[in-house]
Amino acid sequence: MGRVGNLIHGLKPPLLMVLVQVIFAGVNVMYKLAANDGMNLRIIIAYRFMFATAIMVPLALILERTSLGKINRMVLFQAFLCGLFGGSLGQNLYVQSLVFTSATFAAAMVNLVPAVTYILAICFKMEKLAIRTVAGKAKVLGTVIGIGGAMVFTFYKGIEINWSTDVNLLHHHQQQPGGPAGLSSHDTGKFILGAFLGFLCCISVALWLITQAKMSVKFPYLYSTTALMCIMGSIQGSVIALCTEKDWSQWKLGWNVRLLAVAFVGIIGSALLVFLVSWSVNLRGPLYVSIFNPLGLVFVAIIGSLLLDEKLHLGSIIGGILIVCGLYTVLWGKAKEMKQKTQLVPTSTADKESEGTEE
């Protein structure tokens, strides 16, 4: 794991975040496979953080043993919030949004995360609007383009693109009542509630990124931070699952797709993903991380078309291009902003030295 850690640390932040979105796409596929087998999604979420805890706690104890003395009430409280917003609450809000609306609508709502994160980051003084500067305009414009591309990707179909591999891991089995494919509802009241829950999910994820950034300032231990978040998420997720699911047979795991799904979403989708997000937030901030979210839609569509026999349309191609353009625009603005900051530091230092000499 030491070599793996060094490899991760050697990767540049953009590559880390692209990897995060690839993992996100894999998690969505595993969710679909487990739900197609009839497994309750809330139980998957609970197991997800249990598996992640089993991986991250030993790693934190081995690699960051000195962090134990730095854990205090504030660190535990921030870990609780990270586990809540980025884990149990955020995931369950997303699932419940699927139940009351549809998978397509919920996916579209999640792509509001960059905008919500940007607004909250400005409110918490972690980002500056700086609309008069070129960098500020680029970040705002890129965010709008990315969200617009996600909406085009989701709601506009156009002509069908025939490039399917004829591979379908779902085997056209009938979806169970809790599965993503059969979750849309025609009831207006439920649809409005589902849309509201989807928006709350966006706020929850944005608050996680903000809290993660705050936590990393005084507790810069990435393995320990991830372990604490997974512990909190597993406790919270288990409580939610136990309160909503009374069928104990749902908790049984065998040598089947359920075990494969929870192992993947736990080890890769939580332990590794949360570590990568924490690392990137520590390097570049919450807005930088959130702006990559719409890119996940592109990877979900590609993997879905290759492995789940889902169809791609012209709208997917146009939306994907807009998402990439918006992403590049924000990255360019962020890079320009960072360059300006580094140029100002030597100047200010030199000014102070000259003032001292004059005195």
Rank of each mutant, 00 (worst) to 15 (best):
I159G: 09
D166M: 09
W208D: 11
K218I: 05
A241F: 08
T225I: 00
D187P: 04
F219I: 05
W208S: 05
P220L: 05
I159Y: 13
G179S: 14
C202G: 03
I161T: 11
L169G: 06
E160G: 01
M232Q: 09
K157F: 10
G179W: 03
T244W: 01
I210F: 07
N162E: 15
A241W: 02
C201I: 02
H172I: 00
F199V: 14
M232C: 15
H172L: 04
Q174F: 07
T244Q: 10
L228F: 05
V239E: 03
S204W: 01
T225A: 12
G178F: 10
K214C: 08
Y223P: 00
S204L: 04
G158Y: 09
S204Q: 07
K157I: 02
V217R: 14
F219Y: 13
L209K: 05
D247G: 02
C243A: 15
Q175R: 06
G179Y: 09
E160L: 09
G198H: 05
T225V: 04
W208C: 06
S216W: 02
E160H: 08
V239Y: 01
G179T: 04
Y221N: 08
T211D: 06
L200R: 02
G182S: 12
V217D: 11
V205F: 15
F199P: 02
G179R: 07
G189K: 13
C201M: 15
S238Y: 04
M215L: 14
H186R: 08
T188M: 13
T225H: 02
A181D: 11
S234Q: 04
K214N: 12
G179Q: 10
H173P: 00
L222H: 11
G233E: 01
G194M: 03
G158K: 05
L183V: 07
I161Y: 12
L193Y: 10
I235F: 14
V217L: 08
S234Y: 01
I231G: 04
I203Q: 02
S184V: 00
Q175I: 07
C243H: 03
V167I: 15
F191R: 15
S184Y: 10
C243G: 06
S204I: 09
C201Q: 12
A241I: 02
M229H: 05
G189S: 13
K190L: 14
Y223V: 01
W163M: 14
S204C: 08
Q174H: 15
D247W: 01
T225N: 14
H173D: 09
V239M: 11
